[in-house]
């Protein structure tokens, strides 16, 4: 312990940091691409919240561009059909590619017509990221449980921070909405949400509830949320819950 310089932290748990803010000095375990080093000092490069766990520093950005990671589940939108692949918009600076070999379509029958029939422009798809290395566009896959074309329900886009919070921290909000509206809610890593339910009224209700959560900045209690959903439900003709 004596030969290791004890790190000094200039921030506390859950502090908000801005670009250029000093976070720590000395030897610190950094676990974020948004922290950079100048000499022996670590600075933040983004607006975010600091988290310190066992002398490890994490930085949760408030707003950020989605960078694909292998094994992420993303909701994509087909934007183009190529000769052997589809181009997929995944709400990121980079466009995804879905090759025929990563779908259930047999490669021997792949012509542009069969490709178009299988997935056409404007279709939403649930996919997995298999590789992304910054030099090449992310490669996506449709092989896997639950992956494939989204044929029912609705897909909405929300802010990346709210989406991450719902995905990792505030599962209870999502579960509450899903229970109250009897829908299935899937949150992709790329800040897109897929809602599917019995009928479109319930789906709309879930969308409304999620928008409410977003507009209040997660500042809503579960009870208030349930009240809100029930009120809206009554307005729409009181589908019994």
């Amino acid at each position: 312990m004596s030969d290791v310089i004890k790190p000094t932290f200039y921030v506390q748990q859950k502090d908000i940091v801005l670009p250029g803010d000093l976070i720590a000095e000395g030897r610190v375990d950094i676990n974020s691409i948004y922290i950079f080093k100048e000499g022996s000092r670590y600075y933040s490069s983004i607006v975010g919240f600091v988290e310190i766990k066992d002398e490890k520093v994490f930085l949760i950005p408030v707003e950020h561009a989605y960078l694909p990671k292998p094994n992420d589940l993303v909701i994509g939108l087909i934007t183009d059909v190529g000769p052997t692949y589809w181009t997929v918009d995944i709400n990121s600076p980079y466009e995804g590619q879905l090759p025929v070999s990563e779908t259930l379509l047999r490669q021997t029958q792949a012509t542009i017509d069969t490709l178009r029939k299988f997935l056409s422009i404007g279709d939403h798809v649930l996919l997995k990221v298999i590789s992304f290395d910054r030099l090449r566009d992310p490669v996506l896959s449709m092989r896997g449980k639950g992956l494939g074309k989204i044929t029912s329900g609705k897909v909405i886009e929300i802010s990346s921070r709210i989406s991450n919070m719902l995905l990792y921290r505030k599962r209870s909000i999502v579960e509450t909405i899903a229970r109250e509206t009897e829908t299935n809610i899937f949150i992709g890593n790329n800040a897109r949400i897929w809602i599917s339910g019995k009928d479109s009224i319930m789906e709309d209700l879930a969308v409304l509830a999620l928008k409410k959560v977003e507009s209040t900045d997660l500042n809503i209690s579960t009870l208030d949320l349930i009240d809100f959903i029930r009120q809206e439900k009554e307005k729409r003709g009181g589908v019994s819950g």
């Binding site: 801005l18 670009p19 250029g20 691409i33 948004y34 950079f36 600075y43 490069s45 983004i46 607006v47 950005p61 408030v62 707003e63 950020h64 561009a65 990346s160």
Partner: peptide, 11 residues
Amino acid sequence: LADAGIPMRDL
């Protein structure tokens, strides 16, 4: 730029 969440060295 900071509002957009783009990483930078300092404001």
